[in-house]
């Protein structure tokens, strides 16, 4: 299953120096994508949060302690996408034309093999039917279907926003989208503008340039999943957190 390169390859760069760990991306994602709420949202093993914050510390004692955050959307792995290849009813697929890994909720049978195969813990199962306190079904967006229990879901790079942007472009008689015309909800909302989103295949796009930044890296790069989500950090200890290294192997930039 060799990935045939498509025309577009949407990806993301998250600057961890800018990221303040505020969690707005998580909230905006939940609001944009009709994420369900379970009764106990502190159950971190079972809550659904497509954009999840991971907290890391440098492990030094007080007062040299530092914390940092990895906001983690779906990586939309480009190479032999681990979840896509294992899904028995083809409920998840990568669209080679834009690189987005989709999830068909009405197709998913809930076997959770994809969750087992994903090393980024980016996939979430609906252990419950979504709980919508009285009245809150009114904020649900018609652009994203509400999931039923028993299916797996994950970040879609706000695929419906791509559709929206394309429709807008067609309406204006344009074939191509401008850089920044299609961005995800988390990119849009980030108060520090730490997230950049766009087409990695377009050499002029901001995201493509940032992805080539010397301090740019990806999570678990050596496993070979080729994620389309990059991070930038000026801190060695943060960069070291992104992958497993043998002793003395890590090279500070």
């Amino acid at each position: 299953m060799k990935a045939t390169e498509g025309k577009y390859k949407y990806g993301m760069v998250i600057n961890l120096d800018k990221c303040t760990g505020c969690g707005t991306c998580t909230v905006a994602c939940a609001a944009e994508n009709n994420l369900s709420v379970i009764r106990d949202e502190t159950d971190k093993q079972r809550t659904i949060s497509w954009m999840q914050l991971f907290k890391v510390t440098n492990g030094k004692p007080f007062p040299d302690t530092e914390v940092s955050y990895f906001p983690r959307p779906c990586m939309h792995c480009h190479n032999h996408t681990p979840c896509v290849s294992v899904c028995p009813p083809t409920a998840t697929k990568m669209d080679y034309n834009n690189g987005i890994v989709s999830q068909i909720y009405t197709r998913c049978i809930g076997c959770r093999y994809c969750q087992a195969a994903c090393p980024y813990q980016a996939r979430y199962f609906n252990w419950w039917d979504g709980h919508f306190p009285k009245g809150t079904e009114r904020y649900l967006s018609p652009e994203v279907s509400v999931r039923m229990r028993g299916v797996v879901e994950k970040c879609s790079f706000c695929h419906h926003r791509l559709m929206r942007a394309k429709e807008q472009a067609y309406a204006e008689d344009r074939r191509e989208l401008e850089d920044g015309e299609y961005i995800t909800a988390c990119t849009e909302v980030c108060p520090a503008e730490a997230i950049t989103f766009g087409d990695l295949n377009d050499p002029d796009s901001k995201v493509a340039k940032l992805s080539k930044h010397p301090q740019a890296f990806r999570l678990l790069e050596r496993i070979g999943t080729e994620p389309k989500v990059y991070y930038i950090s000026s801190k060695d200890w943060v960069r070291r957190m992104a992958d497993n290294y043998h002793p003395n192997e890590f090279q500070p930039v």
């Binding site: 009245g135 009114r138 849009e188 909302v189 520090a192």
Partner: peptide
């Protein structure tokens, strides 16, 4: 004041507007 970004509370504000059980 804010060039495009907001905060988590602002982004989650509709849950305060529409949740009848807290109003």
């Amino acid at each position: 004041v804010n060039p495009g970004g907001i905060c988590p509370l602002g982004a989650g504000g509709l849950q305060l507007l529409y949740d009848e059980t807290i109003r």
